[in-house]
């Protein structure tokens, strides 16, 4: 009757060991990111722009502040591929110098906003007592009219910071801080939501039960797990910061005139709009292209970091 149709039922349960070599999470993310063509193109374009802007000045013979009054208001030529401005300064060199400032402002302001946003988000999500006040604080910031306040802030503290740190350093600090403290709120909200969900998970309970301190719990267990939303808001944060800085410079409230940024160059170019309309093209294109590349990268990153989409 029982003539053993299946001789070794246990054998089916035996582990043969994984066939594929182990893969790290970031490898998976990278593989998914690669399949998003727009994101990959965005990443490459962004890398090229950053390289051109930071290495370009070492290769290009003209200095951004070198004034050659005899060569002013020139169109594109071999010596000056982007032409020259009203003082005979080479536009390409100024574009590279401007890009350095714009991108550094974008990166630093994003870092500041990210640190602030993650800190507030993690604190609000992790400590129930802080949740109410911190979230009310976030809502308060969200209901402030930001661009007007940014303008007021820049106007208010410019003189004070200029005298302490010098005109260039001062305005850099001011703009980075102003953008940073007005753009951390979305990050804080997203991080708080994720931390709230994460806090109830078993591995946090396990870590707590072996006596992990709150600080270690946050830095070793919570933060690595909320990395993906933070990274996505980081990319969007850079784009936002670059646009805001350019907007401030465009309104004449950003960097001083002899200190080029892309927004400043655009502002200078609009004053010569009637005579040399082609001049507005390059700085505007640089801003738009950078932001477009970053946004595409953010899109791809969001997909790549989402485990529900990954591997499909």
């Amino acid at each position: 009757m029982t003539d053993a149709p299946d001789p070794k039922p246990i054998a089916a349960l035996a582990d043969e060991g994984p066939t594929a070599p182990p893969r790290s999470q970031w490898r998976d993310v990278w593989d998914q990111f690669k399949t998003h063509r727009g994101a990959l193109a965005g990443g490459i374009v962004l890398l090229l722009i950053i390289l051109a802007v930071f290495i370009g000045p070492y290769l290009w013979p003209y200095d951004a502040t070198f004034i050659d009054i005899r060569a002013r208001n020139q169109g594109p030529s071999l010596a000056h591929p982007f032409g020259t401005d009203q003082l005979g300064r080479d536009t390409l060199a100024r574009m590279m110098a401007g890009g350095q400032t714009s991108i550094s402002v974008g990166l630093t302001a994003m870092l500041l906003a990210l640190v602030l946003g993650s800190l507030i988000g993690v604190l609000a999500g992790f400590f129930r007592r802080l949740d109410g006040p911190l979230m009310r604080f976030t809502d308060l910031f969200l209901s402030l009219p930001l661009l007007p306040l940014l303008l007021v802030m820049v106007l208010l503290f410019r003189e004070a910071l200029n005298s302490t740190f010098g005109p260039e350093q001062g305005i850099f600090i001011l703009i980075v801080v102003a953008i940073g403290v007005t753009s951390w709120m979305p990050t804080a909200r997203i991080v708080r939501g994720d931390v709230l969900a994460l806090k109830e998970r078993e591995f946090i309970l396990a870590a707590r039960s072996i006596g992990t301190t709150n600080f270690n719990l946050i830095t070793r267990h919570i933060l690595p797990n909320v990395m993906s939303p933070i990274m996505v808001s980081a990319t969007l944060g850079i784009a936002n910061a670059i646009i805001t800085e350019s907007a401030l410079s465009f309104l004449g409230l950003g960097f001083p005139p002899d200190f080029p940024t892309w927004g400043r160059l655009l502002n200078d170019a609009t004053q010569y709009l009637q005579d040399y309309p082609e001049r507005v093209f390059w700085p505007g294109l640089a801003i738009s292209l950078t932001v477009l590349a970053i946004n595409y990268m953010g899109d791809g990153l969001r997909d790549a970091l989402d485990p529900r989409i990954r591997g499909r």
């Binding site: 309309p277 082609e278 507005v280 738009s288 477009l292 946004n295 899109d299």
Partner: peptide, 23 residues
């Protein structure tokens, strides 16, 4: 829509002025 997201109004505005008013 991505382009619309990325091109700031101070560029698109100036660009349309150059095209439709100046040129």
């Amino acid at each position: 829509t991505m382009v619309g997201y990325s091109v700031p109004p101070f560029f698109s505005g100036v660009l349309v002025i150059v095209i439709f008013s100046v040129q």
